[in-house]
């Protein structure tokens, strides 16, 4: 066996590798989603990916850019998958169409394509749908509704989870957690953002839970319900829109956790992670500016 040649540092290299690994990490959670809630979400995901690729191809052609390298880099597909996961499985097809088209065309391509968008495209698409069609965005299923899969009894007798989080969602979020940890192990994302998002959310929830047990939900409930874990590992870590400096990432993640808790507890929407991510996206350039690392040889 011959000695390998330099470079010896192994990281996830191209955009395609990174995006593929993100999709692999999402697969266990998606499988659990389909197990509990049926095939609706899988149809949504496939449809969203197709719409995303078509929109991206159209916009690239309009902008006079080469199609193949950008379509194959998988970033549009990841945006589509994340958006489809955020939508209820019963959402009509035109909602997925409008959300994905908006996310790719307006929130990504009109700003300059991959790497140039200031806001997370999947979250922009989700927020557009949430504001425009508030009724359809509430068509969530309960696991008991899906015939043949009533996991409610299983989970209520489980000693670890008990009545923790939404039924079915605890498992989905747990598998997303495993996927996210694998991404950190593979060095696709760094630990700073997920740890601070979940940590600040849990900390704030703990403080208020200790103040009044009956009024505020427990920290574990906040962590395993809704899109907190999906948001922490997959959405907030989007390298284009998140903060880039290590210290900046800590502040960025903390801000997301705090805002998520505030919107969840006192705001008008059930899950605040989308708005929290968008708000911190706005703040990311400023955070980056103030947390620039000291260059070697810098004079005070």
């Amino acid at each position: 066996m011959s000695t390998p040649s330099s470079p010896y540092v192994h990281t996830a290299g191209s955009v395609t590798t990174v995006m593929l690994r993100v999709i692999y990490a999402l697969l266990p959670g998606i499988a659990a989603y389909v197990w509990f809630f049926g095939w609706g979400v899988a149809v949504n995901i496939v449809f969203a990916v197709v719409v995303a690729l078509v929109c991206e191809a159209g916009m690239l052609a309009l902008r006079g850019r080469p199609l193949k390298p950008f379509l194959l880099d998988g970033s549009a597909a990841v945006t589509a998958v994340l958006l489809a996961l955020a939508l209820p499985s019963l959402a009509p097809w035109w909602m997925t169409l409008i959300g994905t088209a908006f996310a790719i065309i307006i929130a990504k391509q009109l700003y300059g394509g991959l790497g140039f968008n200031p806001f997370n495209p999947a979250m922009i698409g989700y927020v557009v749908l949430l504001i425009s069609f508030p009724r359809e965005m509430t068509l969530w299923l309960a696991p008991e509704m899906v015939s043949g899969h009533s996991m409610g009894e299983t989970m209520s007798t489980n000693p670890i989870f008990g009545h923790l989080g939404g039924k079915g969602w605890e498992w989905i979020n747990g598998l997303f957690l495993l996927g996210g940890l694998w991404l950190i192990y593979k060095k696709v994302i760094s630990w700073h953002i997920p740890v601070t998002v979940l940590g600040s959310l849990a900390l704030m929830a703990a403080v208020y839970f200790l103040i009044d047990r009956d009024l505020y939900a427990s920290p574990l409930f906040h962590l395993f319900s809704g899109a907190a874990i999906l948001g922490a590992f997959f959405i907030a870590t989007d390298p284009v829109t998140a903060s880039t400096t290590p210290r900046g990432r800590l502040y960025y993640g903390a801000g997301i956790g705090v805002f998520t808790y505030i919107i969840r507890t006192w705001g008008g929407y059930p899950d605040g992670i989308a708005f929290a991510v968008l708000l911190m996206n706005m703040a990311a350039p400023m955070i980056d500016y103030y947390t620039r690392p000291r260059v070697f040889g810098h004079k005070d």
Binding site: I106, V128, I131, S132, F133, P134
Partner: peptide, 15 residues
């Protein structure tokens, strides 16, 4: 018509 609220709100105006 179902209504697309975003077009009536200010973001729709800007876009």
């Amino acid at each position: 018509y179902h209504g697309f609220l975003l077009a009536i709100l200010p973001p729709g105006a800007f876009i």
